[in-house]
Nucleic acid binder design. Structure first.
Ligand SMILES: [Mn+2]
Ligand SMILES: [Mn+2]
Ligand SMILES: [Mn+2]
Ligand SMILES: [Mn+2]
Lengths: 221, 221
DNA sequence: CTTTATTTTTAGACAAGACTAAATCTATAA
DNA sequence: TTATAGATTTAGTCTTGTCTAAAAATAAAG
């Protein structure tokens, strides 16, 4: 079980996340898109990861993480989300500023560091974007049933518990509308023609596009 | 001023530290030794760093950091020592465990991260090994006159303020003798034949070889 | 069941960083 | 001042990770 390069680790994470969405084996082009690279480069990397038994790969049939690959992915996600939490909780970063930095920090190799950080943060269960943080055993806390805000009908009330897009631009958009984790909201109007919604939040009404509401995770209250 | 690779950054740090010791231009072989690599690899890298104007280089004449290279080195050292401080102060690492991890963390790119970390740690002036931490402008706090413990004569009293060797094995040796930063010591005997010294520390007498005492930095009291 | 269109893989190149072996420069000692 | 040891550079090769262009396999239409 030798060290992986940062590049290999980033691929593993990407495969994990695509796998979660589609369940079926991950295609070379999808992975290329996600990694912002070319299909031929992906094929090369896929062979390396397959040699290291982190993924299972049949030519032309896509790839899937092995158990070992899965454990590797969860460790990376754990580190990523712990660091994000650290940056927001301890160093006063905004939730829109931490992803890039965590993308680097997640590659630091030291089991003890991860576990001490976890302890220092008091074993947080969710990161600043509402995503669950795997524990030291790779177990992920399962959430109560949740919805995307665009699934709610008129007059339904809910609490924001996560975002499905951690890009700085989307998060700053939410900041501008004072929407954060824990915000109480209520759907006041649904405009059928474009599926946009008028939302009551902090005693103010804002209209959010379907593109926006589909990226906001909520729990009914 | 594009991004440097981790490898380039490690070379810059090594050149800085060799330069401090010897002042004169740094030789290819010395650098190869320090980097634990081959002279030919060093020549390759030296050319790259010279192209980037981080060092000045004349064939066969060795290399020296430019002003730009110097600033780069100081930023790295700042990050390295801040992270070491973080690991010891906040995550309960021993001073013998932090160097390796800081060697990775120093390469994280984010000015804001460094400065917020500095603030979070309350602008520490020295790292867990007693080495000065450059401030955001690259200024290093100058120390009062200090000595190596092997320079002290009989009956001289002093306080330990630093170590000249941050290797885990040496630091664990010091731990075993309960010698840490701030320890008050007194030279009780100097054995001329091998320059070893009997030291009073915590009301106990220990005999330290010249190899050991030459790596312990002290200030007279 | 062929013929396209799409996806995926191969072939060949390149840059970074490393290595070995060989060549070349510099310094030192006879 | 020349021979020689030591330091340094060059030449050529390797691996990782990337690319473009072209070939091959699969999927989708007609
Ligand atoms: Mn990453
Ligand atoms: Mn996150
Ligand atoms: Mn380093
Ligand atoms: Mn240190």
């Amino acid at each position: 079980m030798d060290q992986l390069t940062q590049s290999e680790e980033n691929y593993i994470k990407a495969i994990y996340s695509l796998q979660q969405k589609t369940s079926s084996p991950v295609g070379t082009n999808d992975l290329a898109d996600r990694m912002d690279t070319k299909a031929s480069s992906v094929t090369d990397m896929i062979k390396r990861l397959s040699d290291k038994k982190l993924i299972q790969y049949k030519k032309y049939k896509g790839c899937e993480l092995t158990d070992n690959g899965m454990r590797t992915a969860l460790k990376l996600i754990r580190k990523h989300r712990l660091w994000e939490t650290f940056l927001v909780e301890k160093l006063n970063f905004g939730w829109d500023e931490v992803h890039e930095i965590a993308e680097q920090l997640e590659h630091i190799q030291s089991l003890k560091l991860t576990d001490q950080l976890d302890k220092f943060l008091n074993y947080p269960k969710f990161d600043p974007h509402g995503d669950p943080i795997p524990d030291a055993e790779g177990e992920i806390q399962q959430r109560e049933q949740s919805f995307k805000l665009n699934e709610l009908a008129m007059d339904q009330s809910a609490v924001v518990i996560g975002v499905a897009d951690s890009s700085a631009s989307f998060l700053r958009f939410l900041d501008r509308h004072k929407i954060n984790l824990g915000s109480s909201i209520c759907v006041k109007e649904v405009y059928e023609f474009d599926d946009s919604r008028e939302i009551l939040i902090n005693d103010e009404l804002v209209t959010l596009s379907a593109a926006a509401t589909s990226k906001i995770t909520v729990q009914l209250v």
